[in-house]
């Protein structure tokens, strides 16, 4: 991808070799290519290190997939950002100052091959993003369908400004969200009043809570640890405080917790 786009704009006219070599040896072109490499590298580094550093612990496949997309889309955007920023910077470094306009530049009205290459390049980029997204959406839907039988169900109710969780199979009702590790879980989400959005942060999933209808999301926690449940839809006065603790725990711990809450384990 990177190499392809590099050639797409830098190798301007698709003409015989010596013209191309001469073009690349031109000062401004050489500088632009250097800048291109630098900018592309910067964006790749940003993608590689920033998001993993910022994002919370990854505790489900969905969260992993969100992070992967953010990193990889940064990678594939990097050469495009590189082209745009290197051309802009090269031009910026050529700047003309003073109170009279600069001399006229070359009268380049358009450049057919470049426009076509650019469009095809962005089309390819778009197709990659779309196909990636569709495959991922599909695999999440397939996983949800496959896991339906083995999953535990948690009924989530958003009320202004608290979450409550009902575990019908276990017969318990709580205000914090505890889940067993490695067991698929289906959240049936609804609201007792206005719209909320159920967001167990470390699990990387989210769905709105609406009155009178149940929305469903699915995940499988993959590691043990603390999670935070937040509301991601402005819901009035204490929207900010509509957050609660939770945890993904080993099956033994989960069963012990259910028993302590007065519920029954399968």
């Amino acid at each position: 991808m990177a190499n392809h786009d590099d050639h797409a704009v830098e190798a301007l006219p698709p003409t015989p070799g010596e013209r191309a070599t001469g073009f690349i040896k031109r000062n401004d072109v050489a500088r632009t290519i250097g800048l291109f490499v630098a900018y592309t590298a910067i964006f790749i580094i940003l993608g590689k290190y920033f998001y993993p550093k910022w994002m919370p612990t990854i505790m489900s496949k969905e969260m992993k997939s969100a992070e992967t997309i953010m990193i990889w889309f940064t990678y594939i955007s990097a050469p495009i950002a590189g082209i745009v920023l290197s051309v802009a910077t090269n031009s910026f470094l050529n700047a003309h100052r003073g109170d009279t306009p600069p001399p006229d530049g070359p009268a380049i009205r358009t450049n057919g091959p470049i426009v076509v290459l650019w469009t095809v390049g962005s089309l390819l980029f778009t197709i990659v993003a779309i196909v990636w997204g569709l495959l991922e959406v599909n695999s999440q839907a397939v996983a949800a369908a496959n896991d339906a039988k083995s999953a535990i169900t948690v009924e989530v109710t958003g009320s202004q400004w608290l979450w409550t969780f009902n575990y019908p199979a276990q017969g318990i009702e709580t205000h914090d969200l505890n889940l067993p590790v490695g067991v698929p879980v289906i959240f049936d989400v609804k609201s007792a009043d206005v719209n909320h959005s159920f967001w167990p942060v470390q699990l990387g999933i989210k769905v709105d809570a609406n009155a009178q209808v149940t929305t469903v999301i699915h995940t499988t926690p993959t590691m043990v640890g603390a999670i935070e449940v937040k509301c991601a839809e402005l819901c009035g006065l204490y929207h900010a405080y509509m957050e609660t603790n939770g945890a993904v725990m080993s099956k033994t711990d989960f069963n012990a917790w259910v028993t302590a809450q007065g519920g029954h384990t399968a």
Partner: peptide, 16 residues
């Protein structure tokens, strides 16, 4: 395309 138009316009120019 919008980016292309802008960078194409400033390419090889001496921006004031």
């Amino acid at each position: 395309l919008l980016f292309l138009v802008l960078i194409g316009t400033i390419w090889r120019g001496k921006p004031w």
